[in-house]
């Protein structure tokens, strides 16, 4: 391992620029399940995003370049748990799900990597039904 970025005393993220993408993704998804879930590499292989528990009070979505050139950056900073769903086809944004007070009725948001914490609501604001994941179609946004 070439370098180690420590975010908190309890959780850390391992970078190794000599890993190929498969090795990197494999290492990422084998970190403890309770701390990191829903890891997704961007379509252009330049970014990796994930949902990270335990760093802040609520789960947030983080992103980092796959070459390890910079530390992980939070894309969300909310008083609700945020869960990564997918990337846009152009690799510039992610789809994130948030519920309200744990009601599991998730709203889907888009967040540009270049504009962290700016959530664009894509679905109903107060749904009385349940969403199940989601993905962008290439002909749509992104």
């Amino acid at each position: 391992m070439r370098s180690l970025h420590r975010e908190t005393p309890k959780v850390f993220f391992i970078y190794n620029t000599y890993m190929d993408l498969t090795q990197y993704a494999d290492a990422a998804v084998h970190l403890p399940y309770s701390e990191r879930i829903l890891t997704r590499v961007s379509p252009d292989n330049q970014w990796i995003a994930w949902t990270w528990f335990g760093v802040r009070e609520y789960a947030d979505v983080y992103v980092a370049p796959t070459d390890g050139s910079s530390a992980p950056m939070p894309l969300t900073d909310s008083s609700e748990n945020s869960f990564l769903v997918s990337w846009t086809p152009n690799s510039r944004a992610v789809l994130v799900a948030q519920d309200h007070d744990g009601d599991e009725r998730y709203r889907l948001y888009q967040i540009e990597v270049a504009c962290p914490s700016e959530l664009s609501l894509l679905t109903d604001n107060d749904p009385h039904y349940f969403h199940a994941a989601g993905s962008y179609i290439r002909t749509g946004i992104g």
Partner: peptide, 19 residues
């Protein structure tokens, strides 16, 4: 965008299955 939802957006009614 594609997703599943237990809701009929055309008839505006909650469903048991996910469409």
């Amino acid at each position: 965008m594609i997703y599943g939802a237990n809701y009929d957006f055309e008839m505006e009614r909650v469903l048991e299955p996910t469409w």
